[in-house]
Simulated assay, not measured.
Amino acid sequence: MKPTITIEYCPKCGWMLRSAWMAQELLTTFTDDLHGVLLHPSEISGRFSVEIDGQKIFDRKVEGRFPEIKELKQLVRDVVNPEKPLGHSDKK
């Protein structure tokens, strides 16, 4: 079964639009590789994290920042389809 990405975000911080944009980018890039992207409003203030089938790949509190979309695509690719080229988003 294809993996599901969960983006947990703080609705009180106004991060829903950022989360929706990231979900759109991931769904566009990984059309054939994902089951879907779930947006999950957090009950914990300040939370922004990204998981793939329960495996956390990014946590804003740990990193001290939000992921750049290029970085997030690379992190997702490394888990769901390591051989997939990302064009201009690929690591140099």
Rank of each mutant, 00 (worst) to 15 (best):
K2V: 00
K2M: 10
P3D: 07
P3F: 04
T4R: 04
I7A: 03
E8I: 00
E8P: 00
Y9M: 02
C10A: 03
C10K: 01
W15Q: 03
W15T: 00
M16N: 10
S19G: 11
A20N: 09
W21Y: 15
Q24T: 14
Q24L: 14
E25Y: 11
E25W: 09
L27Y: 07
T29E: 15
T29H: 07
D32C: 06
D32F: 12
L34Y: 02
L34I: 00
H35K: 13
L38Y: 11
L39A: 01
L39N: 02
P41Q: 07
S42Q: 07
S42G: 03
I44V: 15
G46Y: 01
G46C: 07
G46D: 09
G46H: 06
G46L: 06
R47T: 15
V50G: 08
E51S: 15
E51A: 08
D53R: 05
Q55K: 12
F58W: 13
R60F: 04
R60G: 01
K61N: 08
V62M: 05
E63Y: 03
R65K: 14
P67L: 07
E68P: 05
E68H: 14
L72R: 04
K73I: 05
Q74D: 00
L75K: 14
L75C: 06
R77E: 02
D78K: 15
D78R: 14
D78M: 12
P82C: 05
E83C: 09
K84V: 04
P85F: 05
L86C: 08
L86D: 04
S89D: 12
D90S: 14
